[in-house]
Amino acid sequence: MMSIRNSEPVEQRILDAAAECIRAYGVERTTVTEIARRAGVSRPTIYRRWPDIRWVIAEVLTVRISDVLAAVPAAGPGREELVDRVVRIAEHLRRDEIVMSVIFNAPTLAMVYITERLGTSQQLLIDTLAAAIVQGQAHRSVRAGDPHQMGAMCLLIAQSTIQSAQMVEKFLDRDALNAELAHSLNGYLKP
């Protein structure tokens, strides 16, 4: 009898196994060998899909961030709804053990996506923000400007609260951080 897990698409089994490994061992000790063992596939099966472990982990992050976007839908076309969604997404990501594990336990990998280049999930977030900004501009609750530039700036503001929240938790607990993030985004987007 085939297990339910083996009936899942191979890519999904691999990504689920990678997330399990990150939870169990941390990012730095997650290996393709262990991911393959947990997914019930061979190492070459993984390497046919991703060139190395960093790409697997990046894909895990992209899936998790995409899932958060789907779980926190837009509530309306206005600036306040947009800001509320960004704050809720940032909070979800701050509580996500896989995302935070990469930020805190794999600084080399995290720094690539913080300082050097946009990842797939960051581009997805910018595109989502830009579309919401266009709606807000049509609603007249968001100032004029290039939606992608503004979306990129909103990403930078929110991303900094995700990666640095622990540093300032003595001053900004969860509620205060969310309120200040909302204030920052509202001020930036207000006409």
Rank of each mutant, 00 (worst) to 15 (best):
I157R: 01
P77E: 13
H148C: 00
D175N: 15
R140A: 13
A71C: 04
D173Q: 02
M111N: 14
A75E: 15
L172E: 10
E97Q: 07
S42F: 07
R29K: 15
T30Q: 05
A165K: 00
Q163G: 05
V134Y: 04
D84T: 02
L125P: 02
S121W: 15
W50R: 14
P191Y: 03
Q163S: 14
V134A: 05
Q135I: 09
I57T: 03
W50C: 10
L189H: 03
Y113I: 01
I14T: 00
A132T: 02
R43W: 00
L172I: 12
L82T: 07
L177N: 13
I114A: 03
D127Q: 04
V112W: 10
H148P: 01
A17G: 06
Q122V: 07
A18K: 12
L177D: 11
V72Q: 07
S160P: 06
F104S: 07
A74T: 08
Y188A: 11
Q163M: 08
Q166N: 08
A36Q: 01
S66K: 09
R38N: 05
N178V: 05
V63C: 06
F171S: 07
K170P: 12
I103C: 06
L129Q: 00
I98H: 13
I133A: 02
T33S: 13
S184G: 13
A132W: 08
L177M: 14
G78E: 04
Y25T: 07
G145P: 01
P147S: 13
P9L: 03
P107L: 00
D84N: 09
P107H: 08
I126E: 02
S184I: 15
E11S: 06
V99K: 03
H139K: 10
N6F: 10
E59Y: 01
G187Y: 05
E28I: 09
P77W: 09
M153K: 05
L15K: 01
M1G: 10
R37G: 10
K190R: 14
V102Q: 00
G26F: 05
N6H: 07
M153S: 08
I162K: 05
L155F: 04
P9A: 09
P9H: 04
V56I: 01
I162D: 02
K190Y: 14
R54K: 14
